[in-house]
C-alpha cells in the first residue's frame, strides 16, 4: 500500500484566492459552495420577478395590497432577530461559554419555528381570501419565491437542532467550531434573501 498522503490543497485555484492572501473563509468551503448555489437560485427568482413586473406593471402594483403586510413585517423582524441571536451564539462559542451559546441557538431555533408558523398562517389567510398560485402573475411569483424561502428556513431550523446536539456532545470549542460557523453563515444568507424578498413583495407597489 502506498504511504503517500493525499494533499490538503487541491491546487486548482489561483494563489490570490488562498486564505493566506484573500482572508479567512468563515465556516468551510463546502458551505460556501452551497451558499453560492442558493444565491444563484434566488437570483433567478429575482430576475423572474423583475421580468414579470416589466410585463405586468398594473398587476404587480396591486398585488401587495392583497397581502397581509403585518405578517411580512413580523417575519422580517423575526429573521433579523434570529440573525442577531446567531451572531451572539458565535460570540459565546469563541469565549468557550457553551451554556450561553446553546441558549442563543435555542432562540434561533425558536425564531425559525416562529417564522414557519407565521408563514403557514399567512398562506392559510391568503387561501381564505381566495388567493392562490394561479390568481395572477404576481401571486405566482409570490408563492414561488416565498414557499422556496419557507423550505430553506425549515431545513436550516433542523440544522440548528443538529448543531445544538453536536454542541452538547462537546464537538465545538473556542478553537474548533467551523461546523457551527458554517450554519451561522448559511442562516445569515437565508435572512439576507428575506431582506430582498420583503420589499419586492410587500412594500413596493
Amino acid at each position: 500500500m502506498s504511504e503517500q498522503q493525499p494533499s490538503q490543497v487541491l491546487g486548482i485555484f489561483p494563489s490570490s484566492w488562498s486564505e493566506a492572501r484573500a482572508g479567512r473563509i468563515p465556516g468551510h468551503i463546502p458551505i460556501w459552495v452551497g451558499i453560492l448555489s442558493e444565491l444563484t437560485e434566488f437570483s433567478l427568482f429575482f430576475i423572474a420577478y423583475f421580468v414579470a413586473k416589466y410585463h405586468y406593471p398594473e398587476i404587480f402594483a396591486q398585488g401587495p395590497q392583497g397581502l397581509k403586510t403585518s405578517l411580512g413585517v413580523a417575519n422580517t423582524i423575526i429573521l433579523l432577530t434570529s440573525s442577531y441571536f446567531m451572531a451572539k451564539a458565535m460570540m459565546y462559542i469563541r469565549l468557550d461559554n457553551y451554556g450561553r451559546c446553546q441558549g442563543y441557538l435555542w432562540l434561533v431555533f425558536s425564531c425559525g419555528l416562529g417564522y414557519l408558523a407565521i408563514k403557514t398562517w399567512e398562506f392559510y389567510w391568503n387561501h381564505q381570501q381566495g388567493l392562490s398560485t394561479v390568481t395572477n402573475e404576481f401571486y405566482t411569483v409570490y408563492y414561488y419565491m416565498t414557499f422556496n424561502h419557507f423550505l430553506h428556513v425549515g431545513w436550516a431550523s433542523c440544522a440548528v437542532l443538529w448543531v445544538i446536539f453536536r454542541l452538547r456532545a462537546g464537538r465545538y470549542s473556542a478553537q474548533e467550531h467551523s461546523g457551527l460557523e458554517a450554519l451561522a453563515v448559511y442562516w445569515h444568507m437565508i435572512d439576507l434573501m428575506w431582506i430582498l424578498i420583503f420589499p419586492l413583495l410587500y412594500v413596493l407597489r
Partner: peptide, 13 residues
C-alpha cells in the same frame, strides 16, 4: 448583515 452578522468585514475579500 454581510459585514457584521456574517462577519465578512475582516474575512475573505
Amino acid at each position: 448583515v454581510i459585514d457584521h452578522f456574517m462577519e465578512l468585514k475582516y474575512a475573505n475579500k
